[in-house]
Design a protein around this nucleic acid. Sequence first.
DNA 1: TCCCTATATGCCCCATGTGGCATATATTAA
DNA 2: TTAATATATGCCACATGGGGCATATAGGGA
Lengths: 122, 122
Amino acid sequence: MGHIGIKDLSSFHGALNEPLRLRLLRLLLERELCVCEMMRALKIPQYKVSRHLGILKKAGLVRDWREGTWIHYEIAPTLPSVIKETLVCLRSLWDQSPLIQEDLRGIRGPSTRRPGDPVVTC
Amino acid sequence: MGHIGIKDLSSFHGALNEPLRLRLLRLLLERELCVCEMMRALKIPQYKVSRHLGILKKAGLVRDWREGTWIHYEIAPTLPSVIKETLVCLRSLWDQSPLIQEDLRGIRGPSTRRPGDPVVTC
DNA sequence: TCCCTATATGCCCCATGTGGCATATATTAA
DNA sequence: TTAATATATGCCACATGGGGCATATAGGGA
């Protein structure tokens, strides 16, 4: 692993600087999710979710893949371990927030759908 | 300790969103410093240091006190322990940056001055 | 092919934040 | 009082970034 530039750090902290992105990232620390699940959990319009996920993606923090009409997002598995450890640490801080806890209740329990199941509603 | 609102988290991450503030905070994690020491270590104009320290102060991350013409800054001792632990964790991440390492070399060794010594140059 | 659902994005307005300079304030010494 | 050092801040121009709406794109089913 090479060095991490101040530019990378800026990119990292910039990504976390937005309340919505922070909440999205926290959800993804729980498990992989599709856009519409995050919409419902955070009760925010679709274009916001897409927009901010796009920013997280550009910062290299998440990756996405398509399954039918759904786009799934997850924490990027290729993330440097330093970053991963930092996220785990930040999670403890974020979880002090009642709003974060409420968000998490919105995705409790594993997805009822399995890969291969027909795509019905989201 | 009560809850931490999403507003507090935003304030926290907002404070870290600026490269200069991040570097200042990293220096202060090492030890208490006065403004002119930070100016020299980071090689940046005085008004920037003051400005950004002011923002860190408003975010509650640092506190200051006067000693003669100097203003000393340090990590706020009253900071919630969750925040303190987070800062320690973030330090590991930040220290991966060569620029951060270079900044630290600028303040190596304890201050040569002792409280009570005459204020000469900074 | 047409339609519906799911997702992404272009565009414009506005709020926030920073750079940079000049200046104000505070403290100490002469 | 005057000067010098150390620090804070008001002001303005500019860049960045999010809100919000409309629209584009893509996949699946009838």
